[in-house]
Amino acid sequence: MDWQAFALTLRLASITTIVLLAIAVPLAALLVLGRARWLAAVEALATLPLVLPPTVLGFFLLVLLGPRTAAGRAIAALFGHPLAFSFDGLVVGSVIYSLPFAVQPLVAGFAAVPASLVDAARLLGAGPSRVVRTLLVPLARRSLITAAVLSFLHTVGEFGVVLMLGGDIPGATRTLSIVLYNQVENFDYGAAGRTAAILMGLSVLALIAIYSKGLEHGGARGGSRA
C-alpha cells in the first residue's frame, strides 16, 4: 500500500473541500438570493465541470494556463511555479472539477429555506452576509455536509485531470487513483485490488454516512431539510 499517495490524496481532497466551500457558499447564496438575469449564465458556468470531459480541463490547465501564455505566466508568478506537475496545480484543477458538487447541493438547500424567513430577516435589517451566516447556512446544514462530502469524494476519485497535469511525482502529484492505474499497467493486479478496495471503501463509508444522517431526520433525503 502506497501510504504516501494515500496521505497526499486525503490532503488534496481536504484542501480542495475547504477552498470549495469558501467559494461555493457565497456563490450559491448569490444564485438563490440574487435576481439578476446574468446569474443564469453564472449557474451554467458553475455546473459546466459536471459535463465537461476532464481532458478538456487538463488541456486548459496545461496549455492555456501553461508557461507559454500571459495568463499562465501570471499564475506562475503568483504560485512561484507553473501549475503543471505541482500539488497547487492539482488543487486548482480539483476545485474547478468538483465545483458543481459543492454548488448544486447548496443551491438546493438554500432554495428550500422559506422565502418568508429571508424577507423577515431583511426587514429586520440583516444584510446579505448576515442572512447567509445566521439563516441559510444553519438551516441548510445538511446540504453543507452533502456538499463537503461530495466535493471530497469527487476529488479523491479524480483521475483524468491528474493524469494530464500531474506528471506522476511521488509526494506531489501521485494520487491513489494514479497509483491504482500504475499498478494495473504494471500487471500488479494484487496491489491494484487493495488500492481499489481502499478507494471503494472510502466512498461507500462516506455515502452511508450521508444517507444514514438523512434517515435520522425522518427519512428526509432531499438534502434540503435541516
Binding site: 496545461l62 496549455v63 501553461g66 508557461p67 507559454r68 499562465g72 507553473p82 503543471a84 506537475f85 493524469l163 506528471g167 506522476d168 511525482i169
Partner: peptide
C-alpha cells in the same frame, strides 16, 4: 526534477507546451 509522462508522445507534449 523528473516528470513522468504516460507515454513518449506525452513526454514531448510536456516540453513543447513549455511545462517542462
Amino acid at each position: 526534477r523528473l516528470v513522468t509522462a504516460e507515454n513518449i508522445a506525452q513526454a514531448a507534449q510536456f516540453v513543447d507546451s513549455g511545462n517542462a
